[in-house]
Amino acid sequence: MRHSPLRSFCFLPLLLAMLATAPLVAGEPVVIVNLQSGVEKLTHDEVTSLFMGRQKRLPSGIVALPVEQAQPVATRARFYQLLVKKDLPDINAYWARLFFSGQAQPPRQVNSAAEVLELVAGNKGAIGVVDASLVDRRVRVVLDFGR
């Protein structure tokens, strides 16, 4: 799952081509959890339930802390397209409804993939989404969105 920096260099021309058309052809987003979460795998459904506020705990029973990368906006948009095939304005309106009727709290927002990794690495219940190429040994991949 993890890509070493060296390997990336070998594909420099390809990488540059990808960057040119980013973010549409960004790398594979994967769902990550904390190593102590007690979770090895999650289904797409389970991830949807957690990120849409319908379920509040990981399957292991630990209270979930969904974390999303709000910036750049295209990254967030791509995540919700993959998750529930919805546009951001619809997601924002959905959360306004749930949040202001006291049903659930939206995912914690951070502004970079590094912050997602940090929060997931430091909180047992945290669950987040980052590009596969950024995953390190502090976290565990439980779902590959590309598959």
């Binding site: 306004a96 409804r97 009727s101 006291g102």
Partner: peptide, 22 residues
């Protein structure tokens, strides 16, 4: 939940004030 709560008798009844959600 216990306390003062919106009455969601119909679909959007408890978020009628939240224009952004509609």
């Amino acid at each position: 939940r216990v306390g003062r709560l919106g009455w969601d008798v119909f679909q959007l009844a408890d978020t009628r004030n939240v224009g952004y959600s509609n």
